[in-house]
C-alpha cells in the first residue's frame, strides 16, 4: 500500500501543474457551490469572500515576507557561538 502511495506521489511530483489545475478546479467548484448556496439562501455570509481573501492575502504574505527577508536576514553564524543555528545538528 505504501509503495503505491509513494508511486502516486512521485507521479504528482513530476507533474506539478496537474496538481495545480486540479486544485484550481476544486476551488472553482467550491466558489460555485458557495455562490449557489448563497443564492439558495442557506446562509447570509458574503459569498466567495473567503476564497478571494485567502488568495490575495497569501500572495501578499509571501511577497511581504520576501521583502522583509532583505532586511532581516543574516548569515547563519550571526549569533555564533551563542546559538545552535550553525552547529552540527546530528544527534544520537
Amino acid at each position: 500500500m505504501m509503495r503505491r502511495l509513494v508511486q502516486k506521489l512521485a507521479f504528482l511530483e513530476k507533474n506539478p501543474r496537474r496538481v495545480f489545475r486540479a486544485l484550481a478546479a476544486l476551488g472553482g467548484a467550491l466558489l460555485a457551490l458557495d455562490a449557489l448556496l448563497w443564492i439558495a439562501g442557506v446562509y447570509k455570509n458574503i459569498p466567495v469572500w473567503h476564497g478571494l481573501y485567502g488568495f490575495v492575502m497569501c500572495v501578499a504574505l509571501v511577497l511581504g515576507a520576501k521583502a522583509m527577508r532583505h532586511i532581516v536576514r543574516r548569515r547563519e553564524d550571526y549569533y555564533a557561538p551563542r546559538a545552535t543555528d550553525s552547529e552540527e545538528e546530528r544527534q544520537p
Binding site: F20, L26, C58
Partner: peptide, 11 residues
C-alpha cells in the same frame, strides 16, 4: 475555500 485558495496562491 480559504484553504484551497491559499493553496492555489502557494502553487
Amino acid at each position: 475555500e480559504l484553504l484551497i485558495f491559499s493553496a492555489l496562491a502557494f502553487g
